[in-house]
Computed example of a mutant assay.
Amino acid sequence: MALVFQALVLPLLWCLPPLLVLLGARLLLPRWRGWQGERIVGRRLEALFPEVLHGVVLPDGRGGLTQIDHLALTPRGLLVVETKHYRGAIQGAAEATHWVQLIGRRRYPFVNPLHQNRRHVRAVEALGLGQPVHARVVFTDGARFVDAVPAGVSRCATLARDLGSLRGGRVGRAKQAAWTRLRGQVRRGWLARWRHRRQVERRHGRDDRTRLGKALLGAAGALAGLLWWRVWGSVGL
Rank of each mutant, 00 (worst) to 15 (best):
L73D: 01
H54V: 14
G205T: 12
V124C: 07
D208G: 05
R187Y: 01
L79N: 00
V41W: 11
A174F: 00
R211Q: 05
V153G: 14
R202P: 11
A178P: 08
G142H: 03
V200R: 10
L129I: 01
G225P: 01
D207P: 06
V80G: 01
Q131K: 06
D208Y: 09
G218E: 06
R206N: 01
S154H: 04
W229S: 11
G164S: 15
P150A: 09
Q101C: 03
P109Q: 05
R230N: 09
L48T: 08
Q36N: 10
G42H: 02
T66L: 09
H115T: 03
V100R: 14
W99S: 13
W190L: 15
I103R: 15
R31C: 02
A89R: 15
R173A: 14
L223E: 09
K214G: 03
A151V: 13
V41Y: 06
F139K: 08
T97W: 05
G218C: 07
A157E: 10
A93D: 10
R167E: 06
Q6C: 08
V235F: 07
R122Q: 12
L78E: 00
V80A: 01
Y86V: 15
L28Q: 02
V52A: 04
G61V: 09
E95N: 06
D60F: 05
A7K: 00
R161T: 09
